[in-house]
Nucleic acid binder design. Structure first.
Lengths: 210, 210
DNA sequence: CCTACCGATCGGTAGG
DNA sequence: CCTACCGATCGGTAGG
């Protein structure tokens, strides 16, 4: 904050607002970044592109963020965290069967792809541009997430609620299948979001029930 | 070729070999490009990275290629062409049922992801960096490809070989589901390629049979 | 195939 | 919040 010492009043005001209650400027930047990173990819999104979308000069962004990488980290780990939180809720449930848990998880994934496309696509496609150690942490979190899903399927098989399938192959298929929603977003004319969801659940989950 | 006029003999020899029979240098460049574009992404793969992998200086690459973009175009349209060719073969078949055609197509996709990961991933993830009009052409080809797959499913439904599903949603799911193979490639320990294929066919295609 | 180099653009900083 | 600017790196060219 030292660099505000010799500076006229209104900069100080803005900085204070930014830190105090006005997350909205910072949020605007983050939202615009998610959209640009998805559309143009992380490496070819320039800080000048981002600044243009937000309506300031590139240098001014650095009053709100530390670096371009920070924006990517924020997006990827916020999404990862949301997936982890929902999974834990399913794991903690004592009333749902394994197949019901699996269905709820797949529905959650579909919902994330439908309602938060920018963030979810950036998390899927751009996370490789995360600096170390963030990239390694992210990949490790993903590996653990996959294993926990496998666990739910294995439980279901043991309890006779799920067919004898290869848990690992099924998890890979489920997690990737929903990525098709990316293409649906471009031309939403063919089918509604809920029709798409029901169709995918029927195709991907129904066949696993014993 | 004019720029070879005043140049010592051995450059000329190399250029001739390059043009005549020796596609191997050019092929090496294309293969290395596919791997680098997949690993680092198209925008952050530098010509100096590529040159390093091939074992020459960056400037020397331009005796074999016209531009970095040309390499991406080559990869994307070669892969698209291979998918289109196989689809046409299925469409032309007079002995296969609709569901058999669909299964053969999904098996072909799985095989492409297993045996040609670099090219297929670049085609899926980096095609957005194609210059116009190539990008528009590519997207249009993809749209047509999806419609032709829908047609096969609609035929199957009409003939009573396939369950009443939403053809568009099923095609999106099928095409994306196989992308999970990307993660299998990193640690091939869990399951063999053929086990993975059979598991995916069972999960994705078996349930569509009437 | 190489050396030498160009103009453009990049993320980010200094300073007010 | 801005102007001014920096060093690094980019794809590609000239010339031999």
């Amino acid at each position: 904050m030292l660099y505000f010492t010799f500076v006229p009043s209104n900069y100080l005001t803005m900085a204070k607002l930014g830190g105090r209650k006005n997350g909205s400027r910072r949020e605007m930047i983050s939202l615009a970044a998610a959209r640009l990173f998805r559309e143009k990819g992380f490496p070819s999104t320039g800080m000048r592109d981002l600044a243009g979308d937000v309506g300031v000069e590139a240098a001014s962004l650095y009053n709100h963020i530390r670096s371009k990488s920070e924006l990517l980290q924020e997006i990827c780990f916020r999404v990862a965290n949301d997936f982890n939180t929902q999974l834990q809720q399913m794991e903690n449930s004592e009333t749902l069967s394994s197949i019901e848990k699996l269905e709820a998880i797949v529905r959650f994934h579909i919902d994330m792809w439908v309602t938060r496309l920018d963030e979810v696509m950036v998390t899927n496609n751009e996370s490789k541009y995360l600096d170390e150690p963030y990239n390694a942490t992210f990949l490790n979190e993903r590996r653990i997430y996959v294993r926990r899903l496998e666990q739910i399927i294995e439980d279901g098989i043991r309890k006779g609620q799920i067919k004898k399938v290869q848990p690992y192959a099924v998890v890979l298929t489920l997690l990737s299948a929903v990525r098709g929603i990316e293409f649906w977003h471009r031309t939403k004319k063919n089918i509604s979001a809920s029709e798409l969801e029901e169709s995918m659940i029927l195709h991907l989950v129904e066949g696993l029930k014993k």
